[in-house]
Design a protein around this nucleic acid. Sequence first.
DNA 1: GCACCACATATCATCTGAGGTATGCAGATT
DNA 2: AATCTGCATACCTCAGATGATATGTGGTGC
Lengths: 311, 311
Amino acid sequence: MICGAAMDFANRLRPSHLALLMRIAETGQLQRAAQMAAMSQPAASRVLAEIEARAGGALFERHPKGMRPTALGALCIRHAKVILEEYGALEEEARRVTSGETGRVRVGAVTGPAVGLVMPAVRQVRAEAPDIEMTIGVGTSNELVRGLVDGHYDFIIARLPPNHDSRDFRLHPARNETVSLLVRPQHPLAGRREVTLAELLEHEWVVQELPSPIRQAVEAAFHSQTLDTPPRVTNSSSLLVVLALLESTDTIAPQTREVAQMLAHGALGAKLVELHLAEPIMVSPCFIIQNRFRPLHSAAERLLRAVFDHL
Amino acid sequence: MICGAAMDFANRLRPSHLALLMRIAETGQLQRAAQMAAMSQPAASRVLAEIEARAGGALFERHPKGMRPTALGALCIRHAKVILEEYGALEEEARRVTSGETGRVRVGAVTGPAVGLVMPAVRQVRAEAPDIEMTIGVGTSNELVRGLVDGHYDFIIARLPPNHDSRDFRLHPARNETVSLLVRPQHPLAGRREVTLAELLEHEWVVQELPSPIRQAVEAAFHSQTLDTPPRVTNSSSLLVVLALLESTDTIAPQTREVAQMLAHGALGAKLVELHLAEPIMVSPCFIIQNRFRPLHSAAERLLRAVFDHL
DNA sequence: GCACCACATATCATCTGAGGTATGCAGATT
DNA sequence: AATCTGCATACCTCAGATGATATGTGGTGC
């Protein structure tokens, strides 16, 4: 056997070679195949000759009118079709991934921006590129930042925890958040205008535990008016607990404005109202945070742009 | 879109690249993948970097302990498996064709060698390489030579027709043929030893038409003993006619020795016997003939060798 | 016999790609 | 802090692939 030369015939067959073979088979003429491949006829002739040399036999019978595949040639062409098909599929899918038409995005956010920023952005991207798989994580800023560092999130919207070096991140301020106070419609203060904090002191409250930003914001608001903080407080971050209390008692529940509005005015039919405060309660601002050294892939980039659109 | 660079990403992905990707994914380490591919780690690193540049995104996440595929990388690997599989199949099938383990052979022969040479050779090749598809054509030398010139046969075993330029062919003498005379067992001469031609003159004969070689050989045998040719002759080349006459009458039927032996002693159960002649009747010799300028492919080469083995 | 067509061959220039070694860099481990 | 591991980068070499032009060859058709 005259081995040695044909050591790995197929591995040296590049896709362009396969394409040439197919074009020759299609047209039956080397010349046409050559000009389809944007090369000169001699070049095509030589490429074919080299392939045949490595294959160890002729792939085409030379006829005066053109070329017709031999058994070996037909074999190659049969496989070439499959291979090129697969290459095309790979190219197409890769294009869709790199162009952000498909992919997986994982975004994290604290409750307010999750409702007010991420959800609209997700809906927008979902409409534009339905093949993107988006995962929205909601948690505390600390959890989110840890998730970002671990690579669990592509980017997050959270408050900046003090214990992380901000040089590791790329930050963009998100819009300011304010706190709304939710009550049930039967609450004595419901419908009142310009409610002061002092009036709220003696009511029941259900608030997230310290050191949550909302709790901090609420307490800061009282402190800034040299008031004590409300004494009758139930601690819970559970929305379930909050809703249960709101539904059955005259409890006041602070929530970010976005969440409050969703609950009060949304299509969910929750019968809740926002108190009208004399002065707004501001929460420490959120940031859009991404890992400085981990570039976003296209799908994530796309969602991020959508988030910016909704700032 | 930053097109232009990634014009045809997949087409520049060579099989070796795909293999590298798969090895990286398998081992999770660039180094191992590199040494599996018998290359240095930096080379592998650069290859990967180039692929990623063309793909438009990272294919692997770099971890301190190694590499893990990204979504894009997993996509490529998925397709790479299919492509490499197909390349492998192509290589394997091509190897079998070029090494003559499979393929199509078309051989032609006149009756004698068809039975005595080609059939044993075919059986041998069939046993060694069952995937070779063999076609045996039987005909007159003229038909066979025409078929050889037309490319219908890879090679033939025939007598040399005078009207063809023997420089177009490569010739090998096949073994000499002799004619046997078949009769039914009840024939008066059956079992007799040293039958002379003169004794045969007045019997019935069934012989091929002139200018068939057997007819020529028979007539030449009579002429060489200054005898007339048998007068009571039925002309037919049809084996069916011959067998019908032999079965029902005391007709003498000349056939090449191979055919006669197959009929008389074969497993077919034909009740026929060969006459025992005082002097053998020689047929003009056959040649193994191939087209001088059309090289045989491996499967044909293989069958040809088998034919030579049976010379 | 001559023109024509299609493929093959020759020759040259060019450049991509594959490979090597040496070295840098970052995270992890001890 | 020092070391180890694993990948990236820089720089150089070189074979082989690519591509164009010009020319040869072997058929068909007039």
